[in-house]
Computed example of a mutant assay.
Amino acid sequence: MENEHPRTRFETKIAVLLRRDLATWQRLNVTAFLVSGLGHQLPEVIGEPYADADGTPYLPMFRQPVLVFEGTEDTLSLAHGRALARDLPRAVFTADLFTTGNDQDNRAAVRAVPGDQLDLVGLAVHGPRNAVDKVLKGARMHP
């Protein structure tokens, strides 16, 4: 039986790059925080709300996959610079954010450090597939 809904090849890509030395809980936490920023800033990446057969409503989610990569501290720094140079929508998570307890302190921690000195542990980007691929050069898919 032929699939009625063939797989879509999206022209854009949502990607998260994590520093490879993070603990599992940190990887999950950072990923969740990073993609929340993309969903807020880019409403076009969000699909329609869900509902089950009983009619119970559920929140909408991204309409395309989120690809997760890992890399070294240098890989993250280079990717950050490439994302800035290409003016791609991006979200950052720094090591300092593991020690803060609220959104206001999170923003203050990032604001306190020049961009080229951020201790990045995660970066999320969205944009044309080829541009995101160039940003992620040197990273590998998360195992």
Rank of each mutant, 00 (worst) to 15 (best):
Y58A: 07
R63N: 15
L76N: 05
R63G: 15
Y58N: 00
P57S: 06
A51V: 03
Q117V: 08
P57R: 08
R111L: 11
L88W: 00
L97Q: 15
A91G: 09
G55R: 01
L118W: 01
D116V: 03
G122Q: 11
P114L: 04
T75H: 08
D116G: 01
T75V: 07
Q64D: 09
F98H: 09
H80M: 00
V125F: 03
V45D: 08
T94W: 06
R107G: 03
R107K: 15
H126A: 10
L123T: 10
A112K: 07
A124H: 06
E73H: 08
P60L: 04
D96C: 08
V121I: 15
A95L: 10
L123E: 12
E48D: 09
V45I: 13
L118E: 03
A109I: 13
V45H: 11
A91H: 09
P128I: 08
G81Y: 02
R82S: 03
D54V: 13
P43R: 07
P65A: 13
A83Y: 00
Q64M: 09
F62A: 07
T72D: 12
A51R: 11
F98P: 04
Q104L: 13
L67T: 09
A83F: 00
E70C: 02
G81A: 01
P49D: 09
R82Q: 03
L120W: 07
M61R: 11
V92S: 01
R86H: 05
A53P: 02
D105E: 14
D54A: 15
D119C: 14
T99W: 13
D54I: 11
E48G: 14
L42S: 05
F98Y: 06
L84D: 00
R90F: 00
T56N: 09
Y50W: 09
P43N: 15
R63A: 14
D119G: 14
F62M: 05
A95W: 04
P89Y: 02
A91C: 15
L84T: 00
L88V: 06
L67P: 07
N106C: 13
A95D: 11
G122R: 02
A85G: 01
A83P: 00
R82E: 02
G122Y: 05
E44L: 12
V68F: 03
A79P: 01
F69P: 06
L78N: 11
T72K: 06
V110M: 04
F93N: 03
